[in-house]
Amino acid sequence: MFNVTKITIRRLVLISTIATLGSLFLMVASILFPGPLLLVVAMSMGQVLGVSSLVLYLLAIALDLQGYGEHDELGQAGSAGSGTGGE
């Protein structure tokens, strides 16, 4: 159904990383400037974003461990060149 490649896995990790940075930004801002609105946003959106990004990362790792993308062309190139880092 889905064509999962090494690039897909790398993108999942990339999205997860950026989303986590966003959630950390919200949480740190709420600690440094604890106003009502910021606290509510950090405790709701910030944590939803953080948990979602962790789930995305774990999904990426699970796909990687299952060997998705091992045999696609880019994956082989990536494996030959720099492990699984071929994006």
């Binding site: 997860s16 950390l24 740190v28 953080g50 990362y57 990536g78 492990g83 699984t84």
Partner: peptide
């Protein structure tokens, strides 16, 4: 860096363990 075992473990700290502690 390549998504090798070490990178995955370090990223697990950066994406999971540490943000959970912050939260």
């Amino acid at each position: 860096p390549p998504l090798g075992r070490a990178t995955k473990v370090v990223l697990l700290f950066g994406l999971g363990v540490m943000p959970l502690a912050v939260s």
